[in-house]
């Protein structure tokens, strides 16, 4: 069917008369052939960018969380994922090749997992990952929710790495001295606490190096406990300290979220 046939069919449908359709056909032909601008690809891209910035948040809670996770996944620097996976793999390999009879406190995996999580989280916020103030304030969700989602993403990734590493150790270790839950319990509370502390430090200081220094120092002291002068320092990996570590983690996260909310309010006041 040609264009003219289609136009004639439409005219007959619209006017109900074949004779009138024939009379009006030249007009319809001119209408169909009217020149019009075609936007360039760059113009369409600019429009897409403008619209993307104005994209509303999804209405349902589930869709909102999925949307937030996807958005924050793009924001987190790729090096964090790669470095975490690399160091954790290294930790598992070193643990596997370590001497038999090594005390639980000296297991490389237990020493590495908390530090990997903390260092990843320290670099989550700051100028490299965060948009400018205007964009941040124009987002349909609060900065508090954004920081929490980003923390969860990296923490869950590191948690998954730690679990995979522990399972790999239990399966692949030639010795039968390790079972899964005691191994996980060894690093889980210290990892959560150090990660929460790193989260708080990243909210307190713009420069991530401050957070890195504090976390490294704290964890360095834990590693130094093997040497007699430092043996009296609190042992993060002991079961006695675990309730305190969990409590500290909760307090750190709560304080960091309160700070994020306060920062948002202050920024809005300034505008």
């Amino acid at each position: 069917m040609t264009l003219d046939d289609r136009l004639r069919a439409k005219l007959i449908e619209d006017t109900g008369s074949a004779a009138e359709a024939d009379q009006l056909l030249p007009i319809a032909q001119q209408l169909a052939a009217m020149p019009a601008p075609i936007p360039t690809a760059q113009q369409t891209d600019r429009l897409v960018q403008a619209l993307t910035a104005a994209m509303p948040a999804p209405s349902s809670r589930r869709a909102l969380m999925a949307w937030l996770l996807r958005a924050q996944l793009r924001v987190v620097q790729h090096e964090i994922w790669l470095a975490s996976a690399f160091v954790m793999t290294l930790g598992v390999l070193v643990t596997l090749t370590s001497q038999p009879g090594l005390s639980a406190e000296m297991l490389p995996l237990a020493l590495i997992a908390p530090l990997v999580a903390a260092l990843g989280i320290v670099f989550l916020y700051g100028p490299a990952a965060d948009p400018s103030l205007e964009i941040e304030l124009a987002t349909p969700v609060s900065p508090r929710l954004i920081v929490l989602v980003r923390l969860l993403l990296v923490f869950l990734f590191d948690l998954a790495l730690g679990l995979i590493g522990s399972v790999a150790l239990v399966i692949a270790a030639p010795r039968s001295e390790w079972s899964l839950w005691p191994l996980v319990a060894l690093w889980l509370a210290p990892m959560t606490c150090l990660a929460a502390l790193a989260f708080l430090l990243s909210m307190l200081f713009v420069d991530p190096l401050i957070g890195v220094s504090i976390c490294l120092t704290l964890w360095g002291l834990q590693v130094l406990r093997v040497f007699p002068p430092f043996a009296t320092l609190p042992n993060w990996l002991s079961g006695d300290l675990q309730p305190w570590l969990w409590l500290t983690a909760v307090l750190c996260v709560g304080l960091a979220l309160w700070l994020a909310g306060r920062e948002e309010r202050q920024l809005l006041k300034r505008i």
Binding site: A33, M34, P35, A36, P37, I38, P39, T40, Q43
Partner: peptide
């Protein structure tokens, strides 16, 4: 510079 014109609309 900004537009190309066509007798038909979009390709």
């Amino acid at each position: 510079d900004t537009f190309t014109m066509s007798l038909r609309s979009a390709p």
